[in-house]
Design a binder for these strands. Structure first.
Length: 195
DNA sequence: CATGGGATTGACT
DNA sequence: GTCAATCCCATGC
C-alpha cells in the first residue's frame, strides 16, 4: 500500500462537491470536479518537477491555475501533502453571488452558461494565471467547505484528456443543470445504455 | 531559439 | 458533429 497510490485526491475531489468558490463579489457552489495525480499520465506533474508544475508539488490548499489551449484559465486545488503532486480541477459551479458581474464578464444571460465548464467559471469569477499559488484559505480566491449533508454524487470518467481516460475520477452532482457540456453527454449515453 | 501540444469553448455545417 | 482560436511551457537542436 505504501508503494502505490492511496486515492486521497479522489476523496478531496468528492469532498469539494458543494463547497463555495469565492473571488471578490462573485461566488458559486461546486457541482463538478476531477482528480489528477502525479502517478497517472493525464496529470501535468506526471513528467516531474518543472517551473509549470511547481505549485502541484507544493503544500495542499493552494490554487494551481494554468492556461489551456492558449485561451482559458483552469482552476485547481492542490490536494496532497508537500512533495506529492495532485490536484482537483474545479469544472463547474452553480452561481450564487455576483451574478450580474458574471453575466457582464461572460457576455451571456442564462445562469447555466455562466460557470458550466472549467474555462467558463474562471472567466465568470475573474480568475487568471496571476492566482496560481494563492492560499485558498487566505484569498483573494477562496474555497470554503460545505456544511450541509453530502449531495448525491455521480462518478464518471474524466473529460477532454487523451491519457488514462478510463479512471473514474470525475465527480458531479446528480441531475444538476450546472455541470459542464461533457456532463450532458454522459447523462445521454447513460440513459441510452439503460434502455 | 523553434516547434508542438494541450485538463476548452463557441460558432458553424 | 466538426473545427479554429491562441498562449504557455516542455523539449530538442
Amino acid at each position: 500500500m505504501s508503494d502505490s497510490y492511496s486515492g486521497e485526491v479522489c476523496a478531496v475531489a468528492r469532498a469539494l462537491i458543494g463547497a463555495v468558490v469565492r473571488h471578490g463579489e462573485t461566488a458559486g457552489v461546486i457541482v463538478e470536479t476531477e482528480a489528477y495525480h502525479e502517478s497517472e499520465p493525464a496529470c501535468h506533474a506526471h513528467i516531474g518537477r518543472t517551473p509549470r508544475t511547481l505549485t502541484l508539488f507544493g503544500p495542499p490548499g493552494r490554487a494551481y491555475v494554468y492556461r489551456s489551449y492558449g485561451v482559458h484559465a483552469m482552476l485547481n486545488a492542490v490536494a496532497e501533502p508537500d512533495g506529492i503532486a495532485a490536484a482537483v480541477l474545479i469544472r463547474a459551479l452553480q452561481p450564487c453571488d455576483g451574478i450580474e458581474l458574471m453575466r457582464a464578464r461572460r457576455g451571456r444571460e442564462r445562469l447555466e452558461e455562466l460557470c458550466s465548464g472549467p474555462g467558463k467559471l474562471t472567466q465568470a469569477l475573474g480568475i487568471g494565471l496571476v492566482h496560481n499559488g494563492v492560499d485558498l484559505d487566505a484569498g483573494p480566491v477562496t474555497i470554503s467547505l460545505p456544511g450541509g449533508p453530502p449531495p448525491d454524487i455521480v462518478v464518471s470518467r474524466r473529460i477532454g484528456i487523451t491519457k488514462a481516460v478510463d479512471l473514474p475520477w470525475r465527480f458531479s452532482v446528480r441531475g444538476s443543470r450546472f455541470v459542464s457540456r461533457g456532463g450532458a453527454r454522459v447523462a445521454a449515453s447513460v440513459s441510452r445504455s439503460a434502455r
